[in-house]
Design a binder for these strands. Structure first.
Length: 484
RNA sequence: GGCCCCAUCGUCUAGCGGUUAGGACAUCGGCCUCUCACGCCGGUAACGGGGGUUCAAGUCCCCCUGGGGUCACCA
């Protein structure tokens, strides 16, 4: 297989599902690795729900993930247009070809007739299963093409269709199970399978990656390729992502839209990493950069069983990426989340940059990171009621005042000097860090959990540290009255 | 129900005839320690069942069971 042409053909139905993007992701990685082309095509042939906003959401999702395409909307390409709704003439043309060669026929049976046949079948058999519509038009050619009709494919009833799936291996389907599926609606809009085949064929697609809920569509599609005298592409059907309960992953289980993960503070590369690793493996390695993914991906190690979504592991993967990200980039990513908290700060803010090394081990998402950075970037920390009530009380006031003076007396404002200065006092008094840490922590950060005290001080800088210690001591002296 | 696919710790998985069945997340202990994390050390935990093939089966074959998908003028 040389220079594969892979496509992703989402339908604009409101959001991009992470399960859907996963199948596309494998194809994208493959195209990247092999120097092939990645084609984006919008399958907007659904009667209802097709809005421009939904198309924008697809772009936005792909942009955020960093999945670019060589051909498609926005970038154009030799096979434009890339919207199915703008390719109607093509489908008509191919339908006519199929009719002319005897592989399809015009069917004038209406929906009512179909429904009637279905209820008859139900009456006869007692159930709806296995219903196959036998169109009375199958072998007629005397219909009036100008009258409203649909086009049906004339499926063979004998023989088998087989293909070697890149992830499932050989799959065989008996033609006897096929029915005369619909190619074209009366209004000229193609049905999924037909539009897909015509587009893949005319766009020269060589590899189709999709969820394995599509395996069932493959046999009819191969039938169409054969009827058209064309070579079918290679197929790769990925197992689906299931919810923790083993059912199809849905909103009920977790965030399911790509953009939601962006808003939840996930890193795009972490999403890529988790999704790819869910169903593909490379020995014991768990964390991959995007470039590693492109370099290492292979079809041999794509599992053939469905996988369950695991929120905890996803978070872990995100945390790993968060810690590995250069701080300049991390700062740029976290700024919007700080803004959400009402903190307007530049991405090259010195305090933010200084705090990051101490914050990343304590955060799994950008939201958590912003939360952890909060008090460093506000003029005055926001005190947690519980923390203040417990630690900024008169019994600690003297300690805080003494700490203040020791910090003030430190030779220079760095980790070692601060520690030396404070330790001198502690030892002389027979105190330990435990005795003063929490009140000091609350005075400096407003909360009971933070990086090491000296680390917080150094990031804050001398002035703000002294100021907060002073204010904390005053607060402690005045007692736990929070009404002020 | 027909058809298709799938099956190793709770979860994601390594394994491609001979392994003390490995890693990661989660979980449970412990260490570190000024809090919370990070980190480090250690524990619990898996080949669904039954037949074959083979000197030897988690690995190959068959059946069962279980799970998933799909049966549209949706995609």
């Amino acid at each position: 297989m040389s220079a594969p042409r892979v496509r992703f053909a989402p339908s604009p139905t409101g959001y991009l599902h992470i399960g859907g993007i996963r199948a596309a992701l494998y194809g994208w990685l493959w195209a990247k690795q092999k120097g092939g082309e990645f084609i984006l095509r919008i399958e907007d042939t659904d009667e209802q729900r097709n809005t421009d906003e939904a198309v924008e959401i697809i772009f936005e999702s792909m942009d955020w993930l960093g999945m670019d395409w060589n051909e498609g909307p926005r970038v154009g390409g030799p096979n434009a247009p890339y919207f199915q709704s703008k390719r109607l003439d093509l489908y008509r043309e191919y339908a006519d070809k199929l009719i002319a060669s005897g592989h399809a026929y015009r069917c004038y049976a209406g929906k009512e007739e179909l429904a009637e046949a279905r209820t008859q079948h139900k009456l006869r058999t007692g159930h709806e299963h296995g219903f196959r519509f036998q169109s009375p038009w199958r072998d007629r050619t005397d219909g009036d093409p100008s009258e409203s009709h649909i086009v049906r494919f004339k499926s063979p009833s004998e023989g088998v269709i087989a293909w070697d799936d890149l992830v499932k291996g050989r799959i065989e389907v008996d033609n006897a199970t096929q029915q005369d599926f619909v190619l074209l609606r009366p209004n000229g809009l193609p049905l999924y399978s037909f539009g897909c085949v015509v587009d893949d064929l005319t766009m020269g697609v060589t590899l189709v990656t999709r969820g394995d809920d599509h395996v069932i569509n493959t046999a009819p599609q191969i039938l169409m390729y054969q009827a058209l005298g064309a070579e079918p592409p290679t197929f790769a059907h990925m197992p689906m992502v299931l919810g923790p309960d083993g059912k199809k992953l849905s909103k009920r289980h977790a965030a399911v839209s790509v953009l939601e993960y962006r808003d939840l503070g996930y890193l795009p590369d972490a999403v890529l990493n988790y999704l790819v690793r869910l169903g593909w493996s490379h020995g014991d390695q768990e964390i991959f950069t995007k470039d590693e993914l492109i370099e290492l991906f292979d079809w041999e190690h794509v599992g053939s069983g469905s996988a369950r979504y695991d929120q905890k592991k996803f978070l872990h993967v995100n945390a790993e990426h968060l810690r590995a990200l250069p701080h300049a980039q991390l700062a740029r990513r976290v700024v919007p989340f700080l803004a959400q908290r009402g903190i307007e700060v530049a991405e090259d803010d010195a305090t933010l940059l200084a705090a990051l090394p101490y914050l990343t081990p304590r955060a799994s998402t950008l939201i958590e990171l912003a939360e952890a950075a909060d008090y460093f970037l506000r003029p005055v920390p926001v005190f947690e009621d519980k923390a203040r009530r417990k630690f900024l009380v008169p019994e600690f006031a003297a300690h805080l005042r003494e700490l203040l003076s020791r910090v003030e007396a430190a030779e220079s404002f760095d980790l070692a000097s601060l520690e030396a200065s404070v330790n001198g006092w502690l030892e002389a008094e027979g105190l330990s860090m435990k005795d003063i840490a929490q009140p000091a922590r609350v005075a400096l950060s407003g909360r009971t959990r933070s990086p090491g005290l000296y680390e917080v001080m150094v990031v804050l800088g001398r002035e703000r540290t002294l100021e907060r210690l002073r204010a904390g001591a005053a607060l402690a002296a005045s007692g736990p009255d929070l009404s002020a």
